[in-house]
């Protein structure tokens, strides 16, 4: 079981990486007045058939061959639904997949969001050939990180270059603080 929602995000986004996505969009949208936190993970990977989508929340279904269980998506679904929220997957072969999870912020069983900064930095630096569009919104304040902009500025310098990696971390950290003003989700 995961201890933070940001770990679920890291895990579920790995499916997008394996699906051959070239762009992965991750949105964390909190509305404190409505008491809702919505996390959307959208990719342009290979997508799934309707049959695969119907089985993807079954923990005993997996396409991997190293073990017989696939717990990532079921964990995430349970984390959302146990708060009174919702979970859905929309996918189309050749187009991509969108995973949407909605959480009731004040519910006692809601996991903390956790360290999204480290989740995004890990995803970006480990998958230098994939672009990420990260959006973090709390009520009416928000920021985005678009690796396509970074790539344009950097030329051929990779995201796992230590200085670039540190910049990405600071960019995420500073903008997060300005967006949520220290509110811990």
């Amino acid at each position: 079981m995961m201890t933070e929602l940001s770990l679920n995000v890291l895990d579920v986004a790995q499916n997008s990486v394996k699906a051959g996505a070239t762009l992965i969009e991750i949105s964390v949208l909190a509305d404190t007045a409505k008491d809702r936190l919505v996390i959307i993970i959208k990719d342009n990977g290979c997508g799934m058939t309707a049959e695969q989508v119907s089985r993807v929340t079954d923990p005993f279904y997996t396409t991997r061959t190293t073990r017989k269980v696939g717990l990532g998506v079921p964990f995430y679904k349970f984390a959302a639904e146990s708060t009174g929220g919702s979970f859905s997957i929309h996918s189309e072969v050749g187009v991509g997949t969108t995973v949407t999870a909605e959480f009731v912020i004040s519910h006692i069983d809601r996991m903390p969001l956790g360290d999204m900064t480290e989740t995004m930095r890990s995803l970006i630096t480990l998958n230098g050939n994939i672009d990420f569009l990260y959006r973090y919104k709390v009520d009416d304040r928000e920021f985005t990180l678009d690796t396509r902009e970074f790539r344009e500025v950097l030329g051929g310098i990779p995201f796992d270059n230590p200085e670039v990696s540190e910049y990405i971390k600071e960019y995420l950290k500073e903008n997060k603080e300005e967006t949520d003003c220290g509110v811990v989700l």
């Binding site: 770990l7 895990d11 991997r64 964990f75």
Partner: peptide
């Protein structure tokens, strides 16, 4: 960095190595 690794704490380990 699969589900098993992440759940067991792979992310901070990765950060520590990097």
């Amino acid at each position: 960095m699969a589900t098993c690794g992440i759940a067991a704490g792979a992310r901070p380990v990765l950060t520590a190595f990097a």
